[in-house]
Computed example of a mutant assay.
Amino acid sequence: MSEALTNTPASLLVNAEQLAAHPEWRVFDCRHDLQNTEYGRQAYARGHIPGALFLHLDEDLSGTANGRNGRHPLPEPAVFAQRMADCGVDASTQVVAYDNEGGIFASRLWWLLRWLGHDKVAVLDGGLAGWKRSKRALEENLPTVAPARFTPHAQGMTVDAGQVLDDLQSPRMLILDARSPERFRGENETLDPVGGHIPGAVNRFYFDNLDDDGCYFKPAAELCSEFMALLGARQAAQVVQQCGSGVTACHNLLAMELAGLSGSKLYPGSWSEWCADPARPVARG
């Protein structure tokens, strides 16, 4: 049985030293580029953390997009559970996810597993850059793993477009938008056909969760102070996290958990789903 981390805020991140000390942990390389979707697979083939398996954002960490459900809809629980089982993950497996993009894609895997009831999952703080800074080697070998049994237990961690629309003017909900300030304002939109944001949303650029080098997460106390300034009198459970397609929003979800602010929910379709229906209101600026 794999030794797993205790499920506390301190266990949500691991560093390179911890990961290297636990070769039995199941590691996943989640590197991706939204503009070049083959980048992650190619980069993985050139070198990855020893023992790591590759997961593709579009193929493994998302379901089928139909033009109305966002660019990266959630995968079907049974399909994703089978993918995890094929990768040797069961209820006792400690999973560690990494990427080379500040943790945005690794955070998606972290959130998906927790969504299906698997709390033994952490993100490698610093990602591949942090691993390289610690002077640790990469490998090109493709690991083989024995399949396991992964039973999903979906948690109530999401809201849909209808729920967001119903509470749009309600103080019960605070929407945090993880996109860049420019995209939030509706400027330089290159990924979605409509620019702007959900009315009432507050911008919390995911990159602000990282240190000045954009590598490691900020200390928990600093994150807590920054998020509390946005929440005001609201509780974390009143927060709805969104972004362009439900990916970088997971970075804010992880950051809030690191800050001890648990319970916020994900709007998986996010802006790409919201703006697909012209009847839904749009704000700019």
Rank of each mutant, 00 (worst) to 15 (best):
E140S: 09
R172V: 14
K120S: 08
A106V: 11
D125Y: 05
E3F: 09
R234I: 04
Q241P: 04
A148S: 05
Q155F: 12
R204E: 12
E189M: 08
F150E: 00
T151Y: 12
W111L: 13
D119F: 09
A21C: 01
E24P: 06
F80D: 02
Y206H: 09
G285V: 00
E76Q: 10
L109A: 11
A43S: 12
G103I: 14
G47I: 13
A91R: 12
G200V: 13
A221K: 05
E3P: 09
L253H: 08
T6Y: 04
S262N: 13
A154R: 14
L109G: 09
R149F: 01
L230W: 06
W110H: 04
E222L: 13
P77S: 09
R46Y: 02
C275P: 01
L138S: 05
F207R: 15
V202T: 13
R108F: 10
C275G: 06
P143E: 01
Q35H: 11
K120L: 14
D212A: 15
D208Y: 14
G162K: 11
L109W: 02
W274A: 01
Q42Y: 06
S2M: 11
S225N: 00
P9E: 04
G40I: 15
A4S: 01
G244P: 00
A4F: 15
K135N: 09
A221C: 11
L223R: 07
S245N: 11
E257I: 07
P219W: 10
D29F: 07
L230E: 06
S270E: 03
H153F: 10
S270T: 12
S170M: 05
N203G: 03
S62C: 07
T248K: 13
G200H: 06
G88Q: 03
A43V: 05
S134V: 00
A229E: 00
N15P: 03
P143Y: 03
L13C: 10
D213Q: 11
R108Y: 00
P50N: 03
S92Y: 09
L124F: 08
L53I: 10
V239F: 09
L261R: 04
